[in-house]
């Protein structure tokens, strides 16, 4: 039964010296779900993400992906099937859009140095396949026309989309999105919403950190609220929205202006 959960985090705690940033957080994400993670700034959301992806080794607790405990090394976590985007966009600025996505594909291909030097038919086939898959993803995110542009020259909204496309290139079972609509206008936010639905429909579960309440409540099957490193409440959108403690922790209205 445990592998129907794409993500199963139990008792995750992260301590830095005297500071406990994340305290005993449990979270489960089933395949086909979109789960939201909200909370005021500094609540430990990104730290929690970093614990999931191996960037930090949790002081306590375990993280399981489809039943297996993940080794705390980011590249192995991605290989297992969890991909992520970053709060501050971390694209490969001097690579083209296509190259960024090709790099995302790295863990699903295996042609190494020898193959690159010999350039046999296997190498050519692998490169062609990777390109095809990458272009497909660019189509999916609406960036196909800019495949040969340098990533740093894209406008902000498209950079965010590129990050998502790059993360999807590793065929993940779970996608972690860290504030994907930060700095976007309502129109762009709506487009992102549709994109996330499409991602879920393709078979990837999504766990998203956001401050935009409307976005979160439209999108997510379940929402968890983190305050000062602890999970305050978890449930459907209505349950969380109505909880007084959540409203108190946030200074926003239920209209949910973007932070």
């Amino acid at each position: 039964m445990s592998d129907e959960y794409v993500l199963d985090a139990t008792g995750v705690t992260m301590r830095f010296g005297g500071l406990t940033a994340v305290r005993g957080v449990d979270l489960r994400v089933g395949s086909g779900e979109i789960v939201g993670l909200i909370g005021p700034n500094g609540a430990g959301k990104t730290t929690f993400f970093n614990c999931l992806t191996g960037l930090y080794v949790p002081t306590e607790g375990t993280v399981r992906y489809r039943g297996t405990v993940l080794p705390p090394k980011p590249h192995l976590v991605t290989k297992a099937g969890i991909a992520r985007t970053f709060q501050n966009i971390r694209l490969f600025a001097h690579m083209t859009v296509l190259e960024n996505v090709l790099v995302g594909r790295h863990t699903r291909t295996k042609e190494g140095l020898l193959s690159a030097l010999l350039r046999g038919p296997g190498f050519r086939r692998a490169e062609a396949e990777s390109r095809e898959r990458a272009l497909e993803l660019l189509e999916f995110t609406g960036l196909a026309a800019k495949a040969d542009h340098l990533a740093r020259n894209l406008p902000y909204g498209e950079q965010r989309k590129l990050e998502i496309a790059r993360a999807l290139a590793s065929d993940p079972g779970l996608l972690l999105l860290d504030e994907p609509t930060a700095g976007m206008n309502p129109q762009e936010t709506r487009v992102t919403e549709e994109l996330v639905f499409a991602i879920r429909d393709r078979g990837t579960a999504v766990l998203v950190i956001e401050h935009d309440m409307r976005f979160i409540f439209n999108l997510c099957d379940r929402v968890a609220c983190l305050v000062q490193g602890e999970k305050l409440v978890e449930g459907t959108a209505d349950v969380v929205r109505g909880d007084e403690r959540v409203v108190a922790a946030y200074l926003g209205t239920t209209e949910g202006a973007a932070a």
Binding site: F16, G17, T46, N50, L55, Y56, F86
Partner: peptide
């Protein structure tokens, strides 16, 4: 030295 955290 003492270990320090590195913000991602």
């Amino acid at each position: 030295s003492k270990l320090t955290a590195d913000r991602a």
